[in-house]
């Protein structure tokens, strides 16, 4: 499912918007996901709100906090995932404790039943992940690992070998959030990731403009992930967050296919 989505991306790289499940409401997050699909997204990354998201900056943390306050639960967001998965490949982004709470095996089984393609656990290095990987493999869920600019080559190789679906390559040493001047040094980060894995390499963290996305694609990324910029668009929208997010996705998509 994921491999096809990367292969079929019409531009130079697949576009993967991130949205926070249940933000601003459960229904609105479904509409936002569909708007992404209609405006050029090739895959979706759907965040499950968590109280203590260590890898996320203030925009995504705040959206998660507000989603939880509005009553979002893991189960409700997995339902959102299932609805969106009928339209576009969905990868769920979820912190380890939420998976433990439902049970690793049960969580993978539920993703599979709902037609979800993959899962990203940003606080689960591969050393802690054998149970998760086995459960995901058994249920046909791609457990997508992350690599960072700080990851040494030997570690990159170990992670690259275990990668399923795609390799989530963190563009900067830091947490999620918009940044300026991202484009510098992307070539090296991407080339290093590609040299150590057979799956597509998607770049994320800090990509917020069509120029950033184009630069990532030009540097060789097979996919680009845009999160905080879109979550901010949803947060700042007056009345119609889906339309606001859709408009930004359309710009990003144009940046990739130009």
């Amino acid at each position: 499912m994921i491999a096809e989505a990367f292969a079929k991306a019409p531009g130079r790289a697949a576009l993967m918007p991130y949205l926070m499940g249940g933000f601003p409401t459960i229904e609105a997050s479904v509409e936002i996901g569909l708007a992404c699909a209609e405006n050029g997204a090739d895959l979706l990354e759907l965040g499950i709100p968590y109280s203590d998201p260590l890898a996320d900056g203030p925009v995504i943390h705040d959206a998660g906090t507000r989603a939880l306050a509005a009553g979002a639960t893991t189960g409700a967001v997995l339902e959102v995932a299932g609805r969106l998965a009928q339209r576009i490949p969905v990868v769920v982004m979820c912190y380890a404790n939420l998976v433990y709470a439902r049970g690793v095996e049960a969580f993978a089984a539920e993703l599979s039943e709902r037609g979800v393609a993959g899962m990203i656990i940003p606080d689960l290095p591969f050393e802690e992940g054998p149970d998760f990987l086995a459960a995901c493999d058994a249920h046909g869920i791609a457990l997508v690992p992350l690599v960072a600019p700080t990851t040494p080559d030997a570690r990159l190789a170990a992670i690259g070998e275990r990668a399923r679906g795609f390799l989530y390559t963190v563009s900067v040493t830091g947490i999620t959030g918009e940044r300026t001047g991202l484009a510098q040094g992307l070539d090296g980060v991407i080339a290093r990731a590609k040299a150590h894995t057979d799956v597509p390499v998607a770049l994320g963290f800090g990509i917020s403009t069509a120029e950033d996305a184009a630069a990532a694609a030009a540097a060789g990324a097979d996919g680009v992930i845009v999160g905080s910029r879109l979550v901010r668009a949803a947060a700042e929208a007056h009345g119609d967050p889906a339309a606001a997010v859709g408009a930004v996705v359309r710009e990003l998509s144009a940046g990739l296919t130009r």
Binding site: D123, P125, P149
Partner: peptide
């Protein structure tokens, strides 16, 4: 249980 960035 930390982001990959911190593992090294």
């Amino acid at each position: 249980y930390v982001p990959e960035t911190l593992m090294p």
